Computed example of a mutant assay.
Amino acid sequence: MKKIFCILSLVLLVSEAYAQKKSTGKTSGNPIFPGWYADPEAVVFGKQFWIYPTYSAKYEEQVFLDAFSSPDLVRWKRHSRVLDSSSVKWAKKALWAPAIVLKDGKYFLFFGANDIQSDQEYGGIGVAVADKPEGPFKDYLGKPLVDKFHNGAQPIDQFVFKDVDGKYYLIYGGWRHCNIARLKDDFTGFIPFEDGKIFREITPESYVEGPFMFVHNKKYYFMWSEGGWTGPDYSVAYAIGDSPFGPFKRIGKILQQDSTVATGAGHHSVIHSPKSDKWYIVYHRRPLGETDGNHRATCIERMYFDPEGKILPVKITFAGVTADEH
Rank of each mutant, 00 (worst) to 15 (best):
3 K>H: 10
3 K>P: 03
6 C>N: 13
9 S>K: 14
12 L>V: 13
15 S>W: 05
15 S>G: 15
20 Q>M: 09
23 S>R: 12
26 K>A: 07
27 T>M: 01
28 S>L: 05
30 N>C: 03
31 P>R: 00
33 F>Y: 05
35 G>V: 00
36 W>I: 00
37 Y>W: 04
37 Y>D: 05
38 A>D: 03
40 P>M: 05
41 E>L: 07
48 Q>V: 06
51 I>D: 15
53 P>N: 05
54 T>Q: 13
55 Y>G: 06
59 Y>N: 10
61 E>D: 15
63 V>C: 11
64 F>D: 07
70 S>T: 11
70 S>V: 09
71 P>R: 14
73 L>Y: 05
74 V>D: 14
79 H>L: 01
82 V>P: 13
85 S>I: 03
86 S>D: 01
89 K>E: 09
91 A>R: 08
92 K>F: 01
93 K>C: 12
95 L>W: 14
95 L>Q: 11
97 A>K: 08
104 D>Y: 07
105 G>D: 08
112 G>Y: 09
113 A>R: 08
119 D>T: 00
120 Q>N: 04
122 Y>E: 12
127 V>A: 05
136 P>K: 14
138 K>Y: 14
141 L>A: 02
142 G>R: 00
142 G>C: 09
143 K>P: 10
146 V>N: 10
152 G>T: 06
155 P>R: 00
157 D>R: 01
158 Q>F: 07
159 F>K: 03
160 V>N: 04
161 F>Y: 13
162 K>E: 10
163 D>N: 15
166 G>R: 09
169 Y>G: 02
170 L>Y: 11
173 G>R: 06
174 G>I: 02
174 G>V: 02
176 R>W: 12
176 R>V: 02
181 A>E: 10
182 R>K: 11
184 K>G: 08
186 D>I: 07
188 T>E: 01
190 F>H: 00
194 E>H: 10
195 D>Y: 07
198 I>E: 00
199 F>M: 02
200 R>S: 03
202 I>T: 09
203 T>C: 00
207 Y>G: 05
208 V>E: 07
209 E>V: 03
209 E>C: 03
209 E>W: 12
214 F>H: 06
214 F>Q: 04
216 H>K: 10
220 Y>G: 04
222 F>D: 08
223 M>S: 15
224 W>S: 04
226 E>L: 12
226 E>I: 12
227 G>P: 13
229 W>Q: 12
229 W>E: 11
230 T>H: 10
233 D>C: 07
237 A>Y: 02
240 I>G: 07
241 G>W: 01
241 G>K: 03
242 D>Y: 02
247 P>A: 05
252 G>K: 00
253 K>L: 08
253 K>Q: 05
254 I>N: 00
255 L>T: 11
257 Q>K: 15
258 D>K: 14
262 A>H: 10
263 T>D: 12
267 H>G: 04
269 S>G: 09
270 V>P: 14
271 I>F: 09
271 I>W: 07
271 I>D: 14
273 S>A: 14
277 D>M: 02
278 K>H: 15
279 W>P: 04
280 Y>R: 04
284 H>L: 03
285 R>K: 14
286 R>A: 05
288 L>F: 06
289 G>Q: 06
293 G>N: 09
296 R>W: 12
297 A>C: 07
297 A>P: 03
298 T>R: 01
299 C>A: 13
300 I>E: 09
305 F>K: 09
305 F>L: 10
308 E>F: 06
309 G>S: 10
312 L>C: 07
318 F>W: 01
318 F>D: 01
325 E>D: 04
326 H>S: 00
